Simulated scan of single mutants.
Amino acid sequence: MNYETLRVDIDNRIATITLNRPNKRNCMSPQLHREMTDLLEKLRYDDNVSVLVFTGAGEAFCAGMDLKEFFFETKDSPARFDEIFRTACEWRGRTLRYYPKTTIAMINGFCFGGAFSIVEGCDLAVAANNATFGLSEVNFKLFPGGTVSKSLANLLRPREALFYALTGRPFDGTEAARIGLINYAVPASELRTFTMDIAQEIAQKDLTALRATKDGYRYALEMSWDASINYTLAKQVELKSLQASMESGDWVEAGINDFLKGEYKPGLETHGQSAQRRS
């Protein structure tokens, strides 16, 4: 997995993906979009990876789109712009949202414009208190286009979304947590440890159950009450079937039955952890 715009490190079932254009504050170029698309496809089928963590090299998470390469250099080539635009929208707007593995944004610095869709597409997000967020599009006579307006609508209340989109004002990680853009804001010195602790906790769970959890939530957003209930009932049957051949057993015969036998407390620990401690 050798890429020019990305770094990938895999450890303890966690793949840390670092946007690696520090001299450009990790803004997203056409090459980065293509490389990210390729990487996500590879990690989708990597059995050694359960959780993906996204961060940025240097002092930035991601400063949004590379305005020169993405917009200016394609202004006379509609076909080239369309190809890049679709690639950029696809991995942030659909691939991340429905990815079969848990995704976490670890926001270490500047996070602007199109980077909001990376944050929104991920399942969870943690930022440094002093990270800087902003929707600066209006400052150069644009608006939050592509996937960004939808990302704002998905996550934020109208007042906050419109305030920051209309003023272009920057805000910090503490404010990002207050308005619901991220889960937590922590001191920069604690960001990696805090985020990786969450990632490791999730990586210990059953991978098929994690995927079903995401599917149940994501698709419920698009369904009626009755459709969602029918979908999750079918999902329970599918999950039991997928887990049946696993050494750890399925959620009924192992998950519930071991609880009834007093072998673990699901409100306090993950199935299998008690056995690991006893061994």
Rank of each mutant, 00 (worst) to 15 (best):
L191C: 09
R192E: 15
V186W: 05
Q204W: 08
I202Q: 04
R211I: 03
A209K: 05
Q200A: 15
A209I: 05
T193Q: 12
A203D: 09
L191M: 12
A212W: 00
L207W: 01
S189T: 15
T208L: 00
E201L: 12
V186E: 05
Q200M: 13
A203K: 07
R211E: 12
Q200L: 10
A199P: 03
P187Y: 11
Q200V: 06
D206N: 12
I202W: 10
A199I: 11
A188G: 05
I198W: 01
I202H: 02
A212P: 01
T195C: 03
T193P: 02
D206Q: 09
D206L: 06
F194P: 02
I198M: 06
A188L: 08
N183W: 11
I198Q: 00
L210C: 08
I202Y: 08
E201T: 15
E201V: 01
V186N: 04
P187V: 15
T195P: 02
T193C: 13
I198F: 05
L191S: 01
A209D: 01
A188D: 02
Q204N: 15
A188R: 06
S189L: 12
K205G: 02
T195W: 06
R211Y: 09
D206M: 00
A185G: 02
D197N: 14
I198D: 00
T193N: 09
E201Y: 15
L191D: 03
L191Y: 12
A212I: 07
S189A: 10
I198E: 01
K205D: 07
V186A: 05
S189R: 11
A188M: 06
L210I: 05
Q204I: 14
E190L: 12
D197A: 06
E201A: 14
